[in-house]
């Protein structure tokens, strides 16, 4: 299915950001549709993370627009962007170390249901089933009682995914979702993500260095180099692109 045929969830236009005179991201435009996995790839320092952080409000762009379901979100704080239905996972997992796996998800649910300012009820008894359903979905139900600080890395990534799904998002932003995982785990996590995306009609934008993951799971790929978009299209087209091979793929482009 082509992007044009899908309902556009995220539309980015002419996004730019410079730090101290250096253009980190320059005039980047792209769109992600519902049910689509879009991969953002490029060399280290190409501006991927900056680009990402502008989408959920962590960094304010110098110019350009980011529309979520038609609504401009530039200038909103990350927590406001989240309320509009954007889930996020981080390159280095960010979970609450002093809570169990289930409590991590419960925390996100408490925020989603706007229960954060209540002082009396026991938090651990609220939205327990809902949290367990999400954990079930990502295959972490058995470890619900464990502390996040003792989990294996791949499992933490799954917890992050469950947390990101807690507010029933329209868009998932995943920054290197499989970094630091073994090959088999990588494939499993992305297969799971793809499944959830199809069943819920989510849009996903992810960055990734593992080309196996990218070429297996992305519906489309956009390539960033020195802050500028140098290629966009279906995996086969991007792999064949001479410039992409030169600046990024190297010998893997021919394989």
């Amino acid at each position: 299915m082509e992007a044009a045929a899908r309902m556009t969830v995220l539309a980015v236009e002419n996004l730019s950001k410079s730090f101290g005179g250096v253009h980190a991201v320059r005039n980047v435009s792209f769109a992600v549709g519902a049910g689509e996995l879009l991969a953002l790839i490029g060399p280290n320092g190409a501006g991927k993370t900056t680009c990402f952080n502008m989408l959920n409000g962590q960094i304010r762009p110098d110019s350009g627009s980011v529309r979520l379901g038609g609504r401009e979100i530039v200038g909103l704080a990350p927590r406001a962007v989240w309320r509009l239905g954007v889930g996020r996972t981080f390159q280095i997992t960010a979970t609450f170390a002093s809570m169990t796996v289930r409590e991590n998800v419960q925390m996100a649910l408490l925020s989603h249901h706007r229960r954060v300012s209540s002082w009396w009820p026991r938090a651990a008894r609220l939205y327990r089933e809902e949290a367990d359903r999400l954990l079930e979905r990502v295959g972490m139900a058995e470890q619900a009682e464990r502390a996040c600080s003792v989990l294996a890395y791949g499992d933490l990534k799954r917890v992050e995914l469950a947390v990101a799904l807690a507010n029933a998002p329209r868009l998932l932003l995943m920054d290197e979702p499989t970094a630091g995982m073994a090959p088999k785990e990588r494939i499993a996590l992305m297969a799971l993500t793809a499944e959830i995306v199809r069943e819920r009609g989510l849009a996903v934008l992810f960055t990734e260095h593992d080309m196996d993951v990218v070429f297996t799971h992305a519906d489309r790929i956009i390539v960033l180099n020195r802050g500028t978009l140098i290629a966009a299209g279906r995996p086969a087209d991007v792999r064949a692109d001479a410039e992409v091979q030169a600046v990024y793929l190297g010998s893997r482009g021919h394989g």
């Binding site: 060399p43 280290n44 970094a179 260095h209 030169a246 990024y248 190297g250 010998s251």
Partner: peptide, 10 residues
Amino acid sequence: SEGLAPVIVD
């Protein structure tokens, strides 16, 4: 090689 672009890995 972790986290490096394929061309840098080479």
